[in-house]
């Protein structure tokens, strides 16, 4: 259970406030106008942005001051999710051991994870020699190996085509289902949100609202969201 208690996050001149609870295993879309602070919210939960006020709790434990890597969080960024000089296998292996001193048993798990995301046979490739979809899969294999209870996505598939993006999101949803992870994903596409997220957090005008059913939010959007969606 993720709990943001009266949190205030500053990003330059604007702030985002958040006060809500997310149940374990939930799949949540974070939606809202551009520049409203969706990434700011995600970065704060991941530990890249300190809180100005308030606390972040995971299962009742205060993680407000934990380092990013010490949080129960796996995160995919908008870009740069892979180290270009490391092989696919090494990039994925970082999810198990950040120092890459893998036992043979762990190497087997890396191969299993790569096979699970459809990358068997490409273990030795460098990211530069992969397609965009394959790069996403490699990052997802690492997420799978990280096995963290909270998965944050900051639009890592934005550069992919609609079919490929949908495929990746389905893969993410399936992986989250398998591991029981809680999923929070920033989305610009209402269809994506409907597709895999039963709940949605609206970030608008400096406030991250508590989660509500995605369908309700999108069917009867508040004014700020309606202007953004452009729906009649």
């Amino acid at each position: 259970m993720l709990n943001l208690e009266d949190a205030v996050i500053r990003n330059g001149v604007f702030t985002v406030t958040a006060d809500f609870v997310i149940d374990s295993g939930a799949k949540i879309a974070v939606i809202g106008p551009s520049g409203a602070g969706k990434t700011t919210l995600i970065e704060a939960i991941a530990g890249f942005r300190p809180l100005e006020r308030g606390r972040i709790l995971w299962d009742g434990r205060d993680i407000t001051h934990d380092a990013p890597g010490a949080r129960p969080v796996a995160m995919l960024f908008q870009d740069g999710n892979l180290f270009p000089h490391l092989s696919v296998e090494q990039n994925a292996g970082l999810g198990l051991r950040p120092d890459l001193r893998l036992t043979s048993e762990q190497k087997k798990r890396v191969h299993t994870a790569l096979a699970r995301v459809g990358l068997q046979g490409l273990e030795e490739r460098k990211p530069g020699a992969l397609s965009g979809g394959q790069q996403s899969r490699a990052a997802l294999a690492r997420v799978l190996l990280q096995d963290r209870p909270l998965l944050l996505l900051d639009e890592p598939f934005a550069a992919l085509g609609p079919a490929l993006k949908a495929e990746m999101l389905d893969l993410v949803a399936a992986l989250a289902q398998e591991t029981g992870a809680t999923l929070m994903m920033i989305s610009h596409d209402p269809d994506d949100a409907r597709r895999i997220a039963d709940l949605a957090i609206l970030v608008a005008e400096g406030v991250a609202h508590p989660p509500q059913p995605t369908a309700d939010l999108l069917d009867t959007p508040p004014p700020a969201l309606r202007a953004y969606l452009g729906a009649g």
């Binding site: 990013p68 740069g80 970082l94």
Partner: peptide, 21 residues
């Protein structure tokens, strides 16, 4: 700048980040 955040999110603090990245 490019990989610091990724390293942190993977808990690669100190030695591993130095050695691997």
């Amino acid at each position: 700048g490019d990989f610091g955040q990724l390293g942190l999110s993977l808990n690669m603090g100190g030695g591993p980040f130095l050695r691997l990245v």
